[in-house]
């Protein structure tokens, strides 16, 4: 508790606007879509639980992975039904793809991407990243001086999901569609064949699942009530906020007391 003399006195508890409406709406629609897509996708996997590289791949071809049979409690529907798994999967694939597209357009327009997810050079410096890892290990997730800003690891993982994993899972999904392969043959060139696309689709799903697990654990550790409420209402109550800090994350943090 050594208050450095230059530090300006902090104001009392304030509420900042943390998440734009577009972010919140997309977050929850997407959460539902991801949940249903993973469950129904595991159901589809059970129909042929072997993964291949290349253009073709069936029972007599060498598989690089033989997947376990996913149990009823993680699949949609619970009891194996390929047709119904596909119905769920293909409906929510549209929700995922068009939801992401809408969120991207909105987040460019409201500058969420430029302001909150842009990785600056200093975010990626080894010193900064190491400090952020240490902070995470001490369960300190928010810079008290900039409570509205994402930390570097957060930026990296959110940007990784939004700009890499979700587009990749959508494009590999499209590459598996025989109709889309006629419409956009470059999809197959991009991934090295339909069975490669299917393998990458599965691997990306696993990465997204890992993100969701870590995300949920960190939300719990960071105080799930407050975090959950901020993604519903957009508002976030913080203990204190310094005024006049020249950071655009704070500049938009309207203190509404």
């Amino acid at each position: 508790m050594d208050a450095s003399p230059i530090t300006k006195p902090a104001s009392g508890p304030v509420t900042i606007r943390r998440h734009a409406l577009a972010t919140r709406v997309w977050h929850w629609i997407n959460a539902l879509a991801i949940f249903i897509l993973i469950g129904s996708g595991l159901g589809i996997s059970n129909a042929h639980p072997r993964l291949y590289w290349g253009r073709y791949g069936a029972n007599f071809d060498p598989a690089w992975a033989t997947l376990p049979r996913f149990p009823a409690w993680v699949t949609i529907p619970q009891n194996y039904n390929l047709a119904i798994s596909r119905r769920w999967h293909l409906f929510f694939a549209l929700v995922l793809a068009f939801g992401l597209l809408g969120y991207m357009i909105a987040s460019l327009a409201n500058r969420h991407f430029q302001r909150d997810l842009r990785l600056r050079a200093k975010d990626l410096s080894p010193v900064h990243l190491a400090a952020d890892v240490r902070a995470h290990l001490q369960f300190k997730f928010h810079d008290e001086a900039h409570p509205g800003a994402y930390n570097p690891l957060q930026k990296l993982s959110y940007a990784g999901v939004v700009f890499v994993a979700l587009p990749l899972v959508i494009l590999t999904g499209l590459a598996m569609s025989p109709g889309m392969d006629a419409a956009w043959p470059w999809l197959l060139e991009l991934f090295g064949g339909r069975q490669s696309a299917r393998s990458i689709h599965f691997i990306t799903m696993a990465a997204i699942t890992a993100f969701v697990v870590v995300h949920l654990v960190l939300v719990i550790l960071a105080g799930w009530r407050r975090e959950l409420w901020s993604m519903i209402s957009g508002r976030w109550r913080v203990a204190a906020i310094e005024r006049g800090v020249p950071d655009d994350a704070d500049a938009r943090a309207e203190a509404v007391r």
Binding site: Y56, G57, A58
Partner: peptide, 12 residues
């Protein structure tokens, strides 16, 4: 051409 089964496998 490539034959894609609804189950997920392909054969050419």
């Amino acid at each position: 051409t490539r034959h894609d089964c609804v189950e997920g496998w392909s054969a050419i």
